[in-house]
Simulated scan of single mutants.
Amino acid sequence: MTEGNFVDYVKIYVSSGKGGKGSSHLHREKFIEKGGPDGGDGGRGGHVYLVGNKGLWTLFHLKFARHVKAGHGGDGGSSRSTGHDGEDKIIEVPLGTVVRDKDTNEILFEITEDGEKRIVAEGGKGGLGNWHFRSSTNQTPRYAQPGMPPVEADIILELKVLADVGLVGFPNAGKSTLLSVLTSAKPKIADYAFTTLKPNLGIVAYRDFQSFVIADIPGIIEGAAEGKGLGHYFLRHIERNSTLLFLVPADADDIKKEYDILLDELRRYNPEMLDKDRLIVVSKCDMLDDELKSEMKKQLDKDFKGIPYMFISSVAQQGLTELKDKLWQMLNTEA
């Protein structure tokens, strides 16, 4: 999937169908000049549904579908005939889609399961025919109910990527390179910051035909929680990950400082991020000799007490099997 086809935010106007009018018909046939009321009910208006589809990974198919309107209900007829129901409209969305009210920014609901079906705009009820209003004192009512009006709403669909592991790091830390060697994903890789502008997903094949999903999130910069850089456009994707992999290059000036900045940005965006499992991975370790790596380990033991860390090299294919084992263990160990 190319970056241009990855759409994770769309605004849509939805409108259900209005209910059909009830009929005020009076029964007429040969030899019966003044029959009683026999007006039927109006049909209900069509609903607008959102349905989860595990086969979708993006909201790209809704990029140009800015107006979705369901069908109107049919009017009631004679002989207590009920009008037809309006045509329902179904909007398929990927799992992890959050639905917000555009005006209030309130979260209405989230779609997290395949086949989950939720009404986003309920169709108007059909009006009752005059048959319902007959009584001993009013045997020929000549009125019926109108149908209920449609429900209109402006909604925001916001995709939060569903992945087991999220890659967190500064721009150009080597996240895309790591994703490309762990999975069959083909992210854009180049020697400049913000090469990745959209999240990339890859499936890591593990032993015994098992697998887990890893997401490469565009690089964080200081001030991202306030919207600096790519800001909230990517931070929300980390909310769904159960494990966070902090990637810091071995040639960083201060590994602990970089980690603290990354962690602080996540905390300021959503404090619940700090409850997730964390793994610190020092990349580009092929540049280190054994003596330098030993010295770095002593410092990292002091800096990251209780937080696991590893050394890898995506280019030299060093430590990748151990990394897969560690991630699998973290994902499958109950808290």
Rank of each mutant, 00 (worst) to 15 (best):
P146G: 13
G147T: 13
M148W: 05
P150A: 15
P150T: 09
V151E: 12
E152C: 12
E152M: 12
E152P: 00
D154L: 09
I155L: 15
I156M: 11
L157M: 13
E158V: 14
L159C: 07
L159P: 08
K160L: 10
K160I: 11
K160E: 11
V161F: 05
V161L: 10
D164E: 01
D164K: 05
D164Q: 02
V165M: 03
G169W: 01
F170K: 11
F170I: 05
F170R: 06
N172Y: 04
N172T: 08
A173K: 01
G174P: 01
K175L: 00
S180K: 08
T183D: 02
T183L: 00
S184F: 04
S184I: 07
K186H: 10
K188T: 14
K188H: 07
K188F: 02
A190Y: 00
A190L: 00
D191P: 09
A193Q: 14
A193M: 09
A193Y: 03
T195F: 02
T195D: 09
L197G: 04
P199W: 03
L201M: 13
L201G: 05
L201C: 11
I203W: 00
I203L: 15
I203Y: 06
V204L: 11
Y206C: 14
Y206K: 11
Y206H: 15
D208L: 08
F209M: 10
Q210F: 00
Q210T: 15
S211M: 11
I214T: 12
D216F: 05
I217M: 09
P218G: 02
P218I: 03
G219P: 06
I220N: 08
E222N: 13
E222I: 03
G223I: 06
A224W: 04
A224S: 14
A225D: 13
A225H: 15
E226H: 08
E226Y: 12
G227F: 11
G229N: 09
G229T: 06
L230W: 04
F234M: 14
R240G: 02
N241P: 00
N241Y: 01
T243A: 14
T243S: 01
L244I: 14
F246Y: 15
F246A: 07
F246H: 07
F246P: 01
F246G: 04
L247Y: 02
A250Y: 02
